[in-house]
Design a binder for these strands. Structure first.
Lengths: 140, 140
DNA sequence: CTGCATGCAAACCGTTTGCATCCCC
DNA sequence: GGGGATGCAAACGGTTTGCATGCAG
Protein backbone atom coordinates (compact mmCIF):
# COMPACT_ATOMS: atom_id res chain seq x y z
CA UNK A 1 0.00 0.00 0.00
CA UNK A 2 2.63 2.51 0.91
CA UNK A 3 6.06 2.52 -0.65
CA UNK A 4 8.55 2.92 2.12
CA UNK A 5 11.61 3.00 -0.10
CA UNK A 6 11.54 5.29 -3.14
CA UNK A 7 15.13 4.40 -4.06
CA UNK A 8 17.96 6.87 -4.58
CA UNK A 9 20.99 7.15 -6.76
CA UNK A 10 24.20 5.95 -5.15
CA UNK A 11 26.67 8.74 -5.71
CA UNK A 12 30.30 8.52 -4.64
CA UNK A 13 29.59 10.64 -1.60
CA UNK A 14 26.64 8.53 -0.55
CA UNK A 15 28.56 5.33 -1.00
CA UNK A 16 31.47 6.51 1.09
CA UNK A 17 29.24 7.88 3.82
CA UNK A 18 27.52 4.53 3.93
CA UNK A 19 30.78 2.63 4.02
CA UNK A 20 32.24 4.72 6.79
CA UNK A 21 29.07 4.41 8.82
CA UNK A 22 29.07 0.65 8.37
CA UNK A 23 32.65 0.46 9.59
CA UNK A 24 31.88 1.56 13.10
CA UNK A 25 29.57 0.43 15.83
CA UNK A 26 29.62 3.76 17.63
CA UNK A 27 26.50 5.42 16.26
CA UNK A 28 28.34 8.52 15.17
CA UNK A 29 26.83 11.97 14.92
CA UNK A 30 26.72 13.80 11.60
CA UNK A 31 29.88 15.74 12.25
CA UNK A 32 31.78 12.73 13.53
CA UNK A 33 30.85 11.04 10.30
CA UNK A 34 31.83 14.17 8.41
CA UNK A 35 35.32 13.90 9.87
CA UNK A 36 35.57 10.25 8.94
CA UNK A 37 34.38 10.80 5.41
CA UNK A 38 36.61 13.80 4.89
CA UNK A 39 39.67 11.60 5.19
CA UNK A 40 38.62 10.00 1.94
CA UNK A 41 36.82 12.94 0.35
CA UNK A 42 38.54 16.05 1.65
CA UNK A 43 36.33 18.45 -0.28
CA UNK A 44 32.97 17.08 0.83
CA UNK A 45 30.69 19.61 2.47
CA UNK A 46 29.03 19.22 5.81
CA UNK A 47 25.72 20.00 4.16
CA UNK A 48 26.14 17.07 1.84
CA UNK A 49 26.65 14.76 4.77
CA UNK A 50 23.52 16.03 6.48
CA UNK A 51 21.45 15.91 3.32
CA UNK A 52 22.49 12.38 2.50
CA UNK A 53 22.14 11.01 5.99
CA UNK A 54 18.63 12.38 6.06
CA UNK A 55 17.88 10.92 2.64
CA UNK A 56 19.29 7.51 3.42
CA UNK A 57 17.39 7.39 6.67
CA UNK A 58 14.16 8.15 4.83
CA UNK A 59 14.95 5.31 2.48
CA UNK A 60 15.59 2.86 5.25
CA UNK A 61 19.19 2.40 4.23
CA UNK A 62 20.37 3.56 7.63
CA UNK A 63 18.81 4.25 10.99
CA UNK A 64 18.45 7.73 12.42
CA UNK A 65 18.57 7.60 16.18
CA UNK A 66 16.92 10.62 17.74
CA UNK A 67 17.41 9.98 21.37
CA UNK A 68 18.23 12.05 24.38
CA UNK A 69 21.11 14.42 24.10
CA UNK A 70 21.31 17.13 21.53
CA UNK A 71 22.66 15.50 18.41
CA UNK A 72 21.12 12.96 16.13
CA UNK A 73 23.08 9.77 15.65
CA UNK A 74 23.17 7.28 12.83
CA UNK A 75 23.42 3.53 12.55
CA UNK A 76 24.09 1.38 9.52
CA UNK A 77 22.59 -1.63 11.31
CA UNK A 78 18.93 -1.30 10.38
CA UNK A 79 17.36 -4.33 12.04
CA UNK A 80 15.09 -3.15 14.80
CA UNK A 81 16.97 -2.90 18.06
CA UNK A 82 17.17 -0.71 21.11
CA UNK A 83 19.86 1.57 22.45
CA UNK A 84 21.42 2.68 25.66
CA UNK A 85 23.02 6.03 26.24
CA UNK A 86 25.59 6.74 28.91
CA UNK A 87 24.32 9.64 30.95
CA UNK A 88 27.88 10.59 31.80
CA UNK A 89 29.71 10.59 28.49
CA UNK A 90 26.84 10.45 25.97
CA UNK A 91 28.09 7.31 24.24
CA UNK A 92 25.38 5.20 22.61
CA UNK A 93 25.52 1.40 22.44
CA UNK A 94 23.21 -1.20 21.04
CA UNK A 95 21.08 -2.89 23.62
CA UNK A 96 20.95 -6.65 23.58
CA UNK A 97 17.31 -6.95 24.47
CA UNK A 98 14.62 -8.60 22.38
CA UNK A 99 12.36 -6.16 20.62
CA UNK A 100 8.95 -6.44 22.19
CA UNK A 101 6.12 -6.67 19.69
CA UNK A 102 3.71 -6.87 22.56
CA UNK A 103 4.52 -3.25 23.27
CA UNK A 104 3.38 -2.15 19.86
CA UNK A 105 0.27 -4.28 19.95
CA UNK A 106 -0.71 -2.98 23.32
CA UNK A 107 -0.02 0.53 22.13
CA UNK A 108 -2.09 0.11 19.00
CA UNK A 109 -5.08 -0.97 21.05
CA UNK A 110 -4.84 1.74 23.64
CA UNK A 111 -4.17 4.74 21.51
CA UNK A 112 -6.12 6.67 18.90
CA UNK A 113 -2.85 7.20 17.04
CA UNK A 114 -1.94 5.15 14.03
CA UNK A 115 1.21 3.56 15.40
CA UNK A 116 4.16 3.60 13.04
CA UNK A 117 6.95 2.42 15.26
CA UNK A 118 8.61 2.68 18.60
CA UNK A 119 12.00 2.99 20.12
CA UNK A 120 13.35 2.18 23.53
CA UNK A 121 16.22 4.12 24.96
CA UNK A 122 17.81 3.03 28.17
CA UNK A 123 19.95 5.38 30.14
CA UNK A 124 22.75 4.22 32.33
CA UNK A 125 26.41 4.48 33.10
CA UNK A 126 28.84 2.74 30.83
CA UNK A 127 31.57 0.55 32.35
CA UNK A 128 34.21 3.14 31.62
CA UNK A 129 32.34 5.92 33.38
CA UNK A 130 31.48 3.62 36.28
CA UNK A 131 35.17 3.19 36.90
CA UNK A 132 35.80 6.89 36.76
CA UNK A 133 32.96 7.55 39.13
CA UNK A 134 33.98 4.93 41.64
CA UNK A 135 37.47 6.23 41.58
CA UNK A 136 36.26 9.77 42.19
CA UNK A 137 34.01 8.61 45.02
CA UNK A 138 36.70 6.74 46.90
CA UNK A 139 39.21 9.46 46.25
CA UNK A 140 37.69 12.72 47.39
CA UNK B 1 22.82 5.48 48.89
CA UNK B 2 22.64 8.27 46.38
CA UNK B 3 20.67 11.41 46.97
CA UNK B 4 18.59 12.02 43.88
CA UNK B 5 17.08 15.27 45.09
CA UNK B 6 19.41 17.93 46.47
CA UNK B 7 16.53 20.34 47.03
CA UNK B 8 16.21 23.83 45.61
CA UNK B 9 14.73 27.10 46.68
CA UNK B 10 11.26 27.76 45.35
CA UNK B 11 11.42 31.25 43.92
CA UNK B 12 8.43 33.04 42.46
CA UNK B 13 9.62 32.24 38.95
CA UNK B 14 10.11 28.57 39.72
CA UNK B 15 6.73 28.30 41.36
CA UNK B 16 4.93 29.88 38.44
CA UNK B 17 6.79 27.80 35.87
CA UNK B 18 5.81 24.72 37.84
CA UNK B 19 2.18 25.82 38.10
CA UNK B 20 1.88 26.60 34.42
CA UNK B 21 3.48 23.31 33.49
CA UNK B 22 1.10 21.43 35.78
CA UNK B 23 -1.87 23.13 34.17
CA UNK B 24 -1.41 21.51 30.80
CA UNK B 25 -1.16 17.99 29.51
CA UNK B 26 0.59 19.00 26.30
CA UNK B 27 4.26 18.48 27.22
CA UNK B 28 5.21 21.99 26.22
CA UNK B 29 8.62 23.03 24.99
CA UNK B 30 10.67 25.59 26.86
CA UNK B 31 9.53 28.46 24.72
CA UNK B 32 5.89 27.44 24.80
CA UNK B 33 6.20 27.46 28.55
CA UNK B 34 7.98 30.78 28.35
CA UNK B 35 4.97 32.26 26.58
CA UNK B 36 2.60 30.84 29.17
CA UNK B 37 4.64 32.09 32.10
CA UNK B 38 5.12 35.50 30.56
CA UNK B 39 1.43 36.18 30.85
CA UNK B 40 1.87 36.18 34.60
CA UNK B 41 5.48 37.39 34.78
CA UNK B 42 5.95 39.63 31.76
CA UNK B 43 9.57 40.43 32.57
CA UNK B 44 10.83 36.89 33.00
CA UNK B 45 13.75 35.97 30.79
CA UNK B 46 13.91 32.98 28.49
CA UNK B 47 17.20 32.02 30.11
CA UNK B 48 15.50 31.83 33.49
CA UNK B 49 12.94 29.42 32.11
CA UNK B 50 15.61 27.19 30.63
CA UNK B 51 17.76 27.31 33.74
CA UNK B 52 14.90 26.43 36.01
CA UNK B 53 13.43 23.72 33.86
CA UNK B 54 16.82 22.08 33.79
CA UNK B 55 17.21 22.45 37.53
CA UNK B 56 13.78 21.13 38.34
CA UNK B 57 14.29 18.17 36.04
CA UNK B 58 17.53 17.33 37.83
CA UNK B 59 15.64 17.44 41.09
CA UNK B 60 12.93 15.15 39.89
CA UNK B 61 10.28 17.81 40.28
CA UNK B 62 9.41 17.56 36.61
CA UNK B 63 10.19 15.25 33.74
CA UNK B 64 12.41 16.24 30.87
CA UNK B 65 11.37 14.42 27.72
CA UNK B 66 14.21 14.24 25.24
CA UNK B 67 12.61 12.44 22.39
CA UNK B 68 12.78 12.65 18.67
CA UNK B 69 12.34 16.02 17.13
CA UNK B 70 14.49 18.97 17.91
CA UNK B 71 13.14 20.48 21.08
CA UNK B 72 13.09 19.15 24.58
CA UNK B 73 9.70 18.91 26.19
CA UNK B 74 8.64 18.97 29.80
CA UNK B 75 6.06 17.20 31.88
CA UNK B 76 4.84 17.94 35.40
CA UNK B 77 3.51 14.40 35.69
CA UNK B 78 6.53 12.56 37.00
CA UNK B 79 5.21 9.02 37.39
CA UNK B 80 6.92 6.77 34.91
CA UNK B 81 5.01 6.60 31.66
CA UNK B 82 5.65 6.48 27.95
CA UNK B 83 5.00 8.91 25.14
CA UNK B 84 3.93 9.00 21.56
CA UNK B 85 4.91 11.65 19.08
CA UNK B 86 3.01 12.49 15.95
CA UNK B 87 5.41 12.27 13.06
CA UNK B 88 3.34 14.78 11.15
CA UNK B 89 2.75 17.62 13.60
CA UNK B 90 5.22 16.83 16.38
CA UNK B 91 2.61 16.76 19.12
CA UNK B 92 3.48 14.55 22.09
CA UNK B 93 0.88 12.63 24.08
CA UNK B 94 1.08 10.30 27.02
CA UNK B 95 0.87 6.67 26.08
CA UNK B 96 -1.55 4.51 27.99
CA UNK B 97 0.62 1.45 28.12
CA UNK B 98 1.84 -0.27 31.26
CA UNK B 99 5.47 0.39 32.05
CA UNK B 100 7.34 -2.84 31.53
CA UNK B 101 9.71 -3.67 34.37
CA UNK B 102 10.67 -6.82 32.55
CA UNK B 103 12.41 -4.61 30.01
CA UNK B 104 14.65 -3.10 32.63
CA UNK B 105 15.39 -6.42 34.26
CA UNK B 106 16.28 -8.01 30.99
CA UNK B 107 18.40 -5.02 30.13
CA UNK B 108 20.23 -5.09 33.44
CA UNK B 109 21.20 -8.70 32.87
CA UNK B 110 22.33 -8.31 29.30
CA UNK B 111 24.32 -5.13 29.51
CA UNK B 112 27.52 -4.08 31.22
CA UNK B 113 25.96 -0.69 31.81
CA UNK B 114 24.56 0.26 35.17
CA UNK B 115 20.96 0.83 34.10
CA UNK B 116 19.40 3.98 35.43
CA UNK B 117 16.16 4.13 33.54
CA UNK B 118 14.48 3.77 30.24
CA UNK B 119 11.98 5.49 28.06
CA UNK B 120 9.77 4.30 25.29
CA UNK B 121 8.75 6.60 22.53
CA UNK B 122 6.19 5.54 19.99
CA UNK B 123 5.82 7.34 16.74
CA UNK B 124 2.59 7.50 14.87
CA UNK B 125 0.02 9.75 13.33
CA UNK B 126 -2.40 11.53 15.62
CA UNK B 127 -6.13 11.41 14.82
CA UNK B 128 -6.12 14.98 13.65
CA UNK B 129 -3.31 14.43 11.18
CA UNK B 130 -4.87 11.16 10.03
CA UNK B 131 -7.91 13.12 8.99
CA UNK B 132 -5.85 15.68 7.16
CA UNK B 133 -3.89 12.98 5.41
CA UNK B 134 -6.94 10.98 4.35
CA UNK B 135 -8.52 14.12 3.07
CA UNK B 136 -5.42 14.99 1.10
CA UNK B 137 -5.17 11.47 -0.29
CA UNK B 138 -8.74 11.35 -1.55
CA UNK B 139 -8.53 14.90 -2.81
CA UNK B 140 -5.43 15.20 -4.93
C1' DC C 1 25.70 41.97 53.71
C1' DT C 2 26.45 38.00 50.81
C1' DG C 3 25.19 34.96 47.49
C1' DC C 4 22.09 32.89 44.72
C1' DA C 5 18.58 34.09 41.17
C1' DT C 6 17.15 37.00 37.59
C1' DG C 7 16.79 39.78 33.10
C1' DC C 8 19.02 40.75 29.17
C1' DA C 9 21.71 40.08 25.28
C1' DA C 10 25.28 37.99 23.04
C1' DA C 11 27.40 33.69 21.96
C1' DC C 12 27.10 28.81 20.71
C1' DC C 13 26.18 24.62 18.32
C1' DG C 14 23.89 21.56 15.47
C1' DT C 15 21.33 21.71 11.44
C1' DT C 16 19.22 23.61 7.29
C1' DT C 17 19.13 26.21 3.15
C1' DG C 18 20.17 29.23 -1.04
C1' DC C 19 22.90 29.40 -4.68
C1' DA C 20 26.30 28.79 -8.22
C1' DT C 21 28.75 25.06 -10.17
C1' DC C 22 29.42 20.35 -11.40
C1' DC C 23 28.56 15.88 -13.06
C1' DC C 24 25.93 12.03 -14.54
C1' DC C 25 22.38 10.29 -17.53
C1' DG D 1 21.59 19.68 -22.50
C1' DG D 2 18.98 19.09 -18.30
C1' DG D 3 18.15 17.80 -13.60
C1' DG D 4 19.69 16.24 -9.64
C1' DA D 5 23.89 16.37 -6.45
C1' DT D 6 27.57 18.92 -4.56
C1' DG D 7 30.55 22.53 -2.08
C1' DC D 8 30.36 26.53 0.19
C1' DA D 9 28.79 29.89 3.17
C1' DA D 10 25.28 32.24 5.26
C1' DA D 11 21.08 31.78 7.92
C1' DC D 12 18.39 29.57 11.42
C1' DG D 13 16.37 27.80 15.74
C1' DG D 14 16.99 26.11 20.11
C1' DT D 15 19.79 26.44 24.03
C1' DT D 16 23.47 28.19 26.93
C1' DT D 17 26.17 31.63 29.10
C1' DG D 18 28.42 36.09 30.84
C1' DC D 19 27.43 39.85 33.21
C1' DA D 20 25.40 43.53 35.83
C1' DT D 21 21.60 44.11 38.87
C1' DG D 22 18.15 42.61 42.27
C1' DC D 23 16.40 40.32 46.00
C1' DA D 24 15.86 36.95 49.77
C1' DG D 25 17.84 35.07 53.84
Amino acid sequence: MNTPTPMIRLTTQRQIILEELAKVKTHPTASELYDMVRQRLPRIGLGTVYRNLELMAENGMILKIEVGGTQKRFDAFTDPHYHIRCSACGKVDDMEVPVIDELVNSAAQNSPYQILGHHVEFTGVCPRCQKKHNHAATTH
